[in-house]
């Protein structure tokens, strides 16, 4: 007997939701990017003026560079830490459950709360490092402070991914390796890491695209400052759109963000062979 596939009508709510809240706004933003609109009256078509401005806008380029830096550094910081804690948390140690719940605490806090918390802690006059390095006030340090806070917030989430994946690695692989005489490091590099390959890809895409579009933490923590030292591209878009009310130009930046974000995840999935999605498990 042939199993009945669900009728395609079942997809209607999902499509309607996606269309209304993702596709439609995106189409509108593309339209707005070819107009001049100060938020008042009706948008007037101005051709590619916004786009040629984007090409020559030094501040946009600098913001782009900062976004890239933020992306790369926060990936490089988060991945090893999350991976190690995740693998460790997948084990059966005695203190594991208690320590893991402590590690996961930042996951329970909202972004705004975290940003305000660190802003107060790092205050240059009344914070814990008052009189020391100016983590939020020094233009050369501020962006790394942002990386730190973002990492502090998101490492627990990625740890969770790695913990789950590490638990799924068949014990028989380790048993075989032990018989073959593999040590702790040998097992980690020859079994755990290769087995977590696709988790690393998933987590990396989430981190990279996440950093590309990160916004709230920076808005609250530094407002892009000091000066423009931590003004990343989404914040540049926000300031252009909602302080300067140049909605057309801000839309062009938004379109660029969408394109970059999509391209990034496509490139990462292709480059890592993620699309093949072959299972590494026994019996497949």
């Amino acid at each position: 007997m042939q199993s009945q596939r669900p009728s395609s009508w079942y997809a209607v709510p999902a499509f309607a939701f996606f269309g209304l809240f993702a596709a439609l706004p995106m189409v509108l933003v593309v339209y707005l990017s070819f107009t001049s609109w100060q938020g008042l009256g009706t948008p007037t078509f101005n051709g590619v003026a916004n786009w040629s401005r984007l090409i020559s806008d030094g501040e946009a380029h600098a913001s782009m560079g900062r976004t890239l830096l933020l992306m790369v550094v926060s990936w490089a910081v988060q991945t090893p830490i999350a991976l190690l804690i995740g693998v460790w948390a997948a084990g059966k140690q005695r203190s594991r459950a208690v320590l893991s719940s402590i590690f996961f605490l930042p996951l329970l806090l909202s972004t705004a709360a975290i940003a305000l918390l660190w802003q107060a802690l790092l205050d240059s006059n009344f914070g814990i490092f008052a009189g020391g390095p100016q983590f939020l006030g020094d233009p050369d340090i501020a962006i790394y402070t942002v990386v730190f806070v973002i990492s502090w917030q998101y490492i627990p989430f990625h740890t969770l991914l790695y913990q789950g994946a590490a638990r799924g690695i068949p014990a028989s692989l380790y048993e075989a390796a032990i018989i073959d005489g593999a040590g702790r490091f040998g097992r980690f590099f020859n079994i755990t890491l290769p087995q977590l390959r696709y988790t690393i890809v998933t987590s990396s895409i989430l981190m990279l695209v996440g950093s590309l579009t990160t916004f709230d933490t920076v808005l609250i923590l530094t407002q892009g400052g000091p000066g423009t030292a931590s003004r990343i591209i989404p914040l540049h878009m926000y300031i252009t759109g909602f302080s300067g009310f140049e909605m057309g130009y801000a839309s062009a930046i938004a379109v660029l963000l969408v394109v970059l974000g999509t391209a990034l995840s496509v490139i990462v999935t292709r480059a890592t062979g993620f699309r093949a999605m072959s299972s590494q498990q026994e019996g497949s």
Binding site: L122, D123, S124, Q134, L136, G137, D138, P139, G225, P226
Partner: peptide, 9 residues
């Protein structure tokens, strides 16, 4: 005049 840490105040 403004000290050296006004940027984060």
């Amino acid at each position: 005049g403004f000290g050296d840490n006004f940027a984060s105040v």
